[in-house]
Amino acid sequence: MNIFTRGFRGRKRDSSGQLPPGQYLTDDFPVLSAGPTPRISLDAWEFTVTTEQGESHRWSWAELMALPAESVTVDVHCVTRWSKLDTVWRGVSLDTLLTDIETEADFALVHSYGGYSTNLPLEDLLGGKAWVAYEYEGEELAPEHGAPARLLVPHLYFWKSAKWVRGIDLMVQDSPGFWEQLGYHDYGDPWREQRYQGD
């Protein structure tokens, strides 16, 4: 059954094919966070990858900066329906960070300063699809956008790109993160419109 809304015409349609279903374009950079913005000094910052064996690999800020960085231009899609095209980021590929880590894990649980978390399959962090990003449009990240560093996984809804990232647990079994426990989709592919559980 088709439902039409009397009197609604809508804006001009997106014909670029760059917008996933149900999204609209914005030039803003909206901020959506569940709590206060955590402030993390670079001296205290560290990034830790922990394997399913409990083995930890740590990077200080200086060590992260010493790794080869990449600049990437990507589209980001928020589950609240805004999308932003051609955003420019700089950071370290997860391929670089995970290259020497021995693991049998299939899943990752990403943790943030402030307590946020989000889960995704490990293969979605590899193969040039994910970064620990510390610059946006040529500037340091703003605190409310995840400073000093955030995960960037642009092929999934943007809640997977955890702000204030502090580490990743590699796991044999999937374990839901913050929003994934609260009714949002486990995977979150914007092109399949996987917004809520069961989509």
Binding site: N2, F4, F8, G10, R11, R13, Y24, R81
Partner: peptide
């Protein structure tokens, strides 16, 4: 909302 041509916005 759904427009007459099927376009939707949510």
């Amino acid at each position: 909302l759904t427009a007459p041509d099927g376009y939707q916005a949510a």
